[in-house]
Computed example of a mutant assay.
Amino acid sequence: MEEVCKKEYEINPQTMALIAKYDERGQVVTQAFEKNGSFEVAKWPSQIVDDSCRYFASSLEGRLLGTKQVTSYTHKPPIVISEAMGIYFFPIISPKRKECSWIAHKYIRSFKGEPDHTTSLKFSNGTSINIPVSVGMFANQVQRTAHFRVILEDRLNSSPVSHDARHELIAETFS
């Protein structure tokens, strides 16, 4: 089966990972993994993350600064792409590098270190991939993302205005 290479892609609730790889011309492209399959995108992963953050009214740089403000994480910080949809991703190397792959926190089911110092990752749909980072570094990223999620979700849930009241305020504003 011939694989289609998309030019545009936005992260959505089905996105499990954006894995950097080299195409036949030596350019960095993305293998996007979703719950129901995978395909290539003709952009590097951090470009897709930035485009997706912009779709939700921010940017990758803004999300990185936000995470730093909330957690003090300065190196490889996890980010939230959409608070409303609970889409949290973390990078496996510096997000500034074209080769930086991104993993969706909620789809990780298990992971283990390999003898070649890579990490095998299993997603909730049974898909497995191997990523070029140590299991210790990967475990740290998983833990930091969980910590960030708890802090941010606590802040969102303890807001003084209830969810229903927010919707009423919005409805009144536009009526």
Rank of each mutant, 00 (worst) to 15 (best):
H163P: 06
E8I: 08
E168V: 13
P132K: 02
D50E: 04
H117A: 06
S175W: 08
P91E: 06
V135R: 15
E40T: 15
L65M: 07
V150G: 06
D116Q: 04
E24W: 11
S162T: 15
F33S: 06
E114D: 09
R149S: 09
A57M: 07
Q69W: 13
M1F: 10
G26F: 08
N36D: 08
I79T: 13
I129M: 00
V135W: 10
K7Q: 05
E34M: 09
Q143W: 14
D23H: 07
L65Y: 11
Y73A: 04
K35V: 10
R25Q: 11
T118Q: 12
R97Y: 11
G26Q: 02
F174M: 14
S175I: 07
P115S: 15
K106D: 13
C100G: 06
S120M: 04
E2S: 09
S175E: 12
R54F: 00
T127R: 14
G113K: 08
K76M: 05
S38F: 15
Q69D: 13
P45V: 01
Q14S: 14
K43S: 09
K68R: 11
V29I: 10
K112R: 12
A104E: 00
Q141W: 00
P45L: 06
E34D: 02
A17H: 03
G37V: 09
F123C: 05
I92R: 01
S101C: 01
P77K: 00
S101Q: 05
F39N: 14
E83V: 13
I129T: 01
G26R: 13
I131V: 10
M16S: 05
D154E: 15
R63N: 01
I11K: 06
V135D: 05
A165P: 08
N125E: 09
N125I: 09
F111S: 00
A165H: 10
F33P: 04
I81P: 06
T127D: 06
V161K: 14
E114Y: 12
L152C: 11
H75D: 13
K35S: 05
E40G: 09
A42E: 11
P160S: 15
K76G: 01
V41F: 03
T119N: 04
E168P: 13
S124W: 05
E40N: 14
F33W: 11
F123A: 05
E61Q: 09
K7W: 09
F111H: 00
I108F: 03
V150W: 03
K35I: 07
I131P: 00
D154S: 13
F174C: 04
I151W: 12
H105M: 08
H75R: 09
P160T: 15
P78W: 10
T127G: 03
I11Y: 04
N140S: 14
E61I: 12
V150Y: 12
Q69A: 07
H167F: 15
T15N: 02
S46R: 01
D50R: 02
H147L: 13
I103W: 07
F39C: 10
G37P: 10
S38C: 12
A104S: 12
E61L: 15
N157P: 02
G26C: 07
P91S: 03
E3V: 10
P95K: 03
Q31R: 11
P45F: 02
T15L: 02
H163V: 14
L65W: 11
